[in-house]
Amino acid sequence: MKINDVILRTITKLVVFIILTFGVELFLAGHNDPGGGFIGGLVLSSALVLLFLVYDIETVQKGIPVDFKKVAAVGVLFAVGTGLGAVAFGAEFLTQTFEVFHLPVFGDTELATVLLFEVGVALTVVGTVVTIILSISEDV
């Protein structure tokens, strides 16, 4: 049966980028405002789920040729690796530090190493959620 969903597909092409931008904003707003790696990862994966809903799996996999199980594994490896990096500098496991740098455009910016840990958490959440959605829809 042919399906007429031109409006849905056109809206999705716009809305996916808005959701991705909001996910990155939530990810960067962490640890001072509501936000952080987990919620940012959930919003990013909801954008991917919207793509999988509106288009089909093969089209999206052709556009994003990423194995999401490997994304989750790389995320966990990254998060543990930042914890081990603190051990390498002689501190406790998962110790975080921050420093205020003077950047050209942004002015005085506080850069914290917990951002690297949050990148790992976000990658893990994205990989896990998309893997769950794809494996639930597998047997239909």
């Binding site: 288009y55 089909d56 093969e58």
Partner: peptide, 20 residues
Amino acid sequence: IGTIAYSKFILRGVVVERKR
């Protein structure tokens, strides 16, 4: 996203398709 998923389930009987 939830409304789209339910609408697609009503229309097609499947939420995420393998190949349209």
